[in-house]
């Protein structure tokens, strides 16, 4: 669960505004940290990693409604400050391609940014335990745990988004009465209602009653925790394969970062190392 595939206008106003504010603060701080040294050199680097992630996230495995993210790889290679900027850019571009929603952009940036940073931290923790020769395994393990954590984060966001009366009063989102509309041709002949056509309102439900919520966080959690592990496994295998390959071909790129001096291309190798 790399980012929230929740359309615009589903989550309550306070939640997505808070997401935007948090994302702006994080990106501003990350931008300042990144600008302290070699800022100009980092611009194309962020651009290519963001492009890689966009390519991955835009290629859906249709029967599964799943796409790989490469976010942990991006995190491993870019480290936290550049990861936060890259996450913001990725979700912004995806949102303009209609993928991900504009209002949830802040929350998505936080989720993907967290995925990249947690992936980076776990990968290095696993490397310290297993050694550099097990980079592929470390990347795979880090990916599984990272995706499990961020999936829980997304479930938490959905739970907050559909958390009953407080959310409904704040936003009016999916106020059952508002959602109800009737066919004017005949009374009761053709009637849609959110909860069986009855005129329910927030006051009709007890606190904590799932039926009083407009999103079922419990069912959402059940679905993502059932389907999610298959996606985590696919992502972990892809990440392990790629990191293993890069660790063999360009080890310092994985262990020291792409801006390490020795990664400058060989003079005359215009094709880029192939």
């Amino acid at each position: 669960m790399s980012h929230i595939h929740i359309p615009d206008g589903v989550l309550p106003l306070w939640l997505w505004v808070a997401g935007w504010i948090a994302a702006i603060v994080v990106v501003t701080v990350a931008g300042r940290i990144a600008s302290r040294s070699e800022a100009r050199r980092k611009v194309p680097l962020i651009g290519v990693v963001a492009a890689l992630m966009i390519v991955a996230m835009s290629s859906e495995i249709v029967p599964l409604a799943y796409h790989v993210n490469l976010s942990v790889i991006g995190g491993i290679l870019l480290a936290p400050a550049l990861s936060a900027i890259t996450a913001f850019i990725v979700v912004l571009v995806l949102a303009m391609l209609g993928h991900g929603g504009v209002t949830v952009l802040g929350l998505n940036a936080i989720v993907i940014g967290a995925e990249m940073v947690i992936g980076w931290a776990l990968f290095h923790a696993v490397l310290r335990a297993l050694g550099r020769s097990r980079a592929a395994i470390g990347a795979g393990v880090a990916t599984v745990f990272t995706l499990a954590i961020t999936t829980t984060l997304v479930v938490g966001i959905v739970w907050l988004g559909g958390a009953g009366e407080a959310a409904e009063r704040e936003t009016g989102a999916l106020d059952p009465a508002t959602m109800r509309f009737e066919n004017p041709f005949a009374e009761g002949v053709f009637e849609f209602g959110l909860f069986g056509g009855k005129d329910h309102g927030p006051d009709d439900y007890e606190d904590g009653d799932e039926a009083g919520r407009y999103l079922s966080a419990g069912r959402f959690a059940a679905v993502v925790y059932t389907l999610g592990p298959a996606g985590w496994l696919i992502e972990a295998l892809v990440t392990a394969g790629i990191i293993g390959y890069v660790a063999r071909v360009r080890p310092k790129m994985v262990f020291e970062g792409p801006l390490a001096e020795e990664h400058h291309r060989i003079p005359g190798d215009e094709s880029g190392g192939h």
């Binding site: 194309p44 651009g47 790629i242 390959y245 990664h263 880029g272």
Partner: peptide
């Protein structure tokens, strides 16, 4: 993996 390595070389070239 090859694309990843190429992309970093590309970023250096772009810079």
């Amino acid at each position: 993996g090859g694309l990843l390595i190429y992309s970093f070389d590309l970023s250096q070239r772009s810079y």
